[in-house]
Design a protein around this nucleic acid. Structure first.
Length: 419
RNA sequence: GGGGGAAUGUCCCGAGUGGCAAAGGGGGCGGACUGUAAAUCCGCUGGCGUACGCCUUCGUAGGUUCGAGUCCUACUUCCCCCA
């Protein structure tokens, strides 16, 4: 098995691979040269798989979504594979424990919700380069056990399966790996084969943690169909200081607007570390590379301009230009001009409620604290401001000077209270 | 089948002699410094109450004790050794 690791000296012929390389999407590829040649010949089909464990995708998925988007933009046909079937089994990769098994109803609801996000990045359609969304429950659930073993099981040796990191890790850490989970890689491999048969799909892409799973699919297509198939992975996304992305918001960075407002999404990008700006501009915007090079070169505080461009472009892709502009305007007013902005996320409190409300309660209502105790501790630490004035007495009643006021937690988190 | 270990603050790792809301890390949040950055230093990191306080937490269920994460019994899951 060939496992090139992002070869440096290589000039791609296909636009797709060229873009992938230039913008930093390539981590590993089964055979980059051959994939490039194949992609240069004409329309190609590739897929990325997503599970349905949550009702929204998060920032960790974004890199592969962008990859599919570029794939389509460069003339190819992307397939979004929803793991309605595999979600019922659970990927053992990088997990200590078995995932809770979800019901059909939940999986289907999640699937519908996730579909809306994809429609912002891809153009779906049955013709030519139109993107497809398919659910592997469609074929996995029909599979009989004997049939499965005979048709697919013969192609996998346990010897090799045991060598995969996802399995090895569990065994080394002496953590249980159920037989159910052990089968996950077989199921994922059959997905590739099925997509090859149904849609002529010859490439699976994904995060570097999926490498093992992807390899299995590639091998299966090669063995059963005797046709070349490819795998391509992206680097794991971390910030320069080694943190998970989006830590500033304390929690997952969701892509659904109902779970994370466009304003907060914009802020997340705005707070990118200096060292990450160039890399993120390449991965998460579609700005030309020379423009990115210019922005990246900005020194000192000027790099903040580049961060605003990053925030604007990334937010536009997900939530649209209007939402991005509104978020930018809100941030400008609140942070740079120091005035009240109507466009900040708001917290509504009735006048009657506000009359007897303590600072503690207001902070909880604003979503700045998870409990009264948390709010008191935060206030003791000087974290909470109303119209720029630090709140010192947790128990004191809230006294606003007008019908609206700006709430602030820490340096960067702002909300508007409206009575 | 027999013998020996292990499960801790619902983010993770991890100490714990019968008086424990429970050491220490990591992570997260906040303060200072800055540029809504990083690095650094400092503080906080179960719930309720203004407060002496009350409640809920150490795999599950019982028991001993004034008092149990700590002792006993059964069960669950995992690891190791023997067969």
């Amino acid at each position: 098995m060939t496992t090139d690791t992002a070869p440096e000296a290589f000039t791609p012929r296909s636009e797709f691979i060229r873009v992938m390389q230039e913008r930093g999407y390539v981590h590993q590829c089964t055979d980059l040269t051959a994939l490039d040649a194949a992609a240069a010949e004409g329309r190609f089909t590739a897929y990325v798989g997503y599970d349905c464990t949550a009702d929204s995708l998060h920032i960790g998925h974004l890199i592969s979504i962008m990859m599919l988007r570029w794939f389509q933009k460069t003339g190819h046909r992307p397939i979004v594979l929803m793991g309605g079937g595999t979600t019922k089994v659970g990927d053992p990769t990088d997990k200590d424990q078995q995932r809770p098994l979800l019901t059909d109803a939940v999986i289907n609801a999640n699937l519908a919700s996730i579909r809306r996000t994809f429609s912002k990045f891809l153009t779906f359609g049955d013709t030519g380069g139109g993107a497809l969304m398919v659910n592997n429950a469609d074929w996995l659930e029909k599979l009989g056990y004997i049939e499965f073993l005979r048709d697919y099981g013969v192609h996998f040796t346990v010897n090799r399966m045991l060598a995969f990191d996802s399995v090895k890790l569990r065994l080394e850490r002496e953590q249980p790996l159920s037989f159910l989970e052990f089968n996950y890689m077989l199921m994922q491999a059959t997905d590739f084969l099925e997509l090859y048969r149904r849609h002529g799909c010859r490439l699976q892409m994904g995060g570097s943690d999926q490498w093992g799973n992807i390899i299995n699919g590639v091998e299966l297509v090669r063995r059963v169909e005797g046709k070349p198939a490819f795998g391509l992975t992206t680097p794991l996304l971390t910030t320069s200081s080694g943190q998970k992305m989006g830590k500033t918001l304390g929690g997952a960075v969701w892509l659904n607007a109902e779970k994370l407002s466009p304003y907060d999404y914009w802020q997340m990008w705005r707070n990118t570390e200096d060292a990450d700006v160039g890399r993120f501009l390449k991965l998460f915007t579609e700005l030309p590379l020379d423009e990115i090079a210019r922005l990246e070169a900005l020194g000192g505080a000027e790099i903040n301009e580049a961060k605003k461009v990053l925030a604007g472009e990334a937010t536009t892709l997900l939530h649209g230009r209007e939402a991005a502009d509104t978020a930018a305007a809100a941030a400008r007013a609140a942070f740079e001009e120091g005035r009240l902005s109507e466009d900040l996320p708001t917290v509504e409190v009735s006048a009657a409620d506000l009359a007897g409300m303590s600072h503690t309660a207001l902070m909880v209502a604003a979503g700045f604290a998870s409990s009264n105790g948390d709010a008191r501790r935060q206030i003791a630490g000087g974290a909470f401001r109303i119209d720029g004035v630090k709140v010192s007495d947790a128990a004191a009643l809230v006294a606003l000077s007008g019908p609206e006021a700006e709430l602030r937690k820490g340096n960067a988190r702002k909300r508007l209270v409206v009575t």
